[in-house]
């Protein structure tokens, strides 16, 4: 464990807490893409298959349980909570995430470190996480009005990935033969997807204007 990874995990935790607080307290999920939330639930469900078989550390197990619980409860809130679901704009959130899931599954079957069920599922979860934010970014560009909680949520998610890249650089420098192209490339792609959002988010923050993404 290093400071980059710990702060990355904490930033990731913050992002889901911000989202849960927004949905739970103001009972609204306006501007949030259910498709992205479903993709994240899928990411954690396929990545943490070994939660009860391979014990890494107490921290690791607790964080996995938190991410599983929060991602599934956010999906539940947006789908079934009688008040929250009313604020979900399904007309705008139309990204066909199946078109993301299938290519990731095929790629995971072809490009992986070991052709076993667990390994393919783990690799699949990496690829899905890399593209999971796309429906949310598309929705933000459509709905124009980005409330600052949603903006903070996306910003924290991007920051968590950026910190993970620093973590991989640190581990590469300190642990010999720590080379994992699949993890690194999918993580890099994911972080790059946030690049333009970061640009507009920081600009809007600097000029103290509402965050507007270009059409």
């Amino acid at each position: 464990m290093n400071i980059f990874r710990l702060s990355g995990d904490m930033t990731h935790l913050m992002s889901v807490i911000v989202l849960l607080l927004k949905i739970h307290t103001i009972k609204s999920c306006a501007g949030i893409s259910l498709k992205t939330q479903e993709l994240y639930a899928l990411v954690f469900a396929t990545r943490y298959l070994d939660i009860f078989t391979d014990f890494v550390s107490v921290y690791n197990t607790i964080m996995k349980l938190i991410f599983l619980a929060t991602s599934f409860s956010i999906v539940w809130y947006m789908r079934h909570h009688k008040i929250v679901r009313r604020s979900y704009d399904k007309e705008q959130d139309t990204f066909r995430h199946l078109f993301l899931i299938l290519p990731c599954l095929i790629l995971a079957l072809v490009v992986n470190e070991k052709f076993t069920f667990k390994e393919v599922m783990w690799t699949f979860s990496l690829y899905v996480e890399a593209v999971a934010i796309l429906p949310q970014l598309v929705l933000l560009q459509r709905t124009k009005n980005i409330d600052n909680l949603t903006g903070q949520y996306v910003f924290l998610l991007g920051a968590y990935r950026a910190l993970y890249i620093l973590n991989w650089i640190y581990r590469y420098l300190t642990e010999k033969h720590f080379v994992h192209w699949i993890t690194w490339i999918s993580g890099l792609v994911q972080t790059l997807l946030y690049a333009d959002f970061f640009y507009y988010y920081i600009n809007s923050w600097k000029n103290n204007v509402r965050l507007q993404l270009p059409a």
């Binding site: 990874r5 391979d54 890494v56 550390s57 964080m63 783990w122 642990e175």
Partner: peptide, 10 residues
């Protein structure tokens, strides 16, 4: 420790 992969990461 788990084999040197990123599996020990979240």
């Amino acid at each position: 420790t788990p084999d040197q992969t990123t599996k020990d990461e979240l």
